[in-house]
Amino acid sequence: MDELHQPLLVVRVIRTGGFAGLRRQWEVEATSEDEAQAWWPLVEACPWDATPADNHPDGFVYEVQANDREATLPERQVDGPWRELVDAVVDSAS
C-alpha cells in the first residue's frame, strides 16, 4: 500500500442505545501531517482513562476510538473535551 495514503490518524465514533436502539457510526481519517496536527489536540484533551459513569435509561452510549485509544462513554459523560471531539467527528463525517 502507498505509504502516503496510509491514514496517520483515524477517529471513530460509534453511537448505540437511545430509545430507538439504532447504531450510528462516524469516522474521520487524517491522511496528511497537517490534518493529523489539527486533530491531535482534540484527541489528547480527552480523559481516555477515566472510569465510565453509569448510563441512564435510554441514554446514548458512545464508543470513541482514536488509533489505539478507546473509550466507552454514557451520554451524560460526553461533555467538555469529549463533546468537542465527538461533535467534530460527527460534523466532519456528516
Partner: peptide, 10 residues
C-alpha cells in the same frame, strides 16, 4: 454485544 449496555434495546 457490549454495545447498547449489552444490547438492552435488542
Amino acid at each position: 454485544t457490549t454495545q447498547d449496555n449489552g444490547g438492552v434495546h435488542l
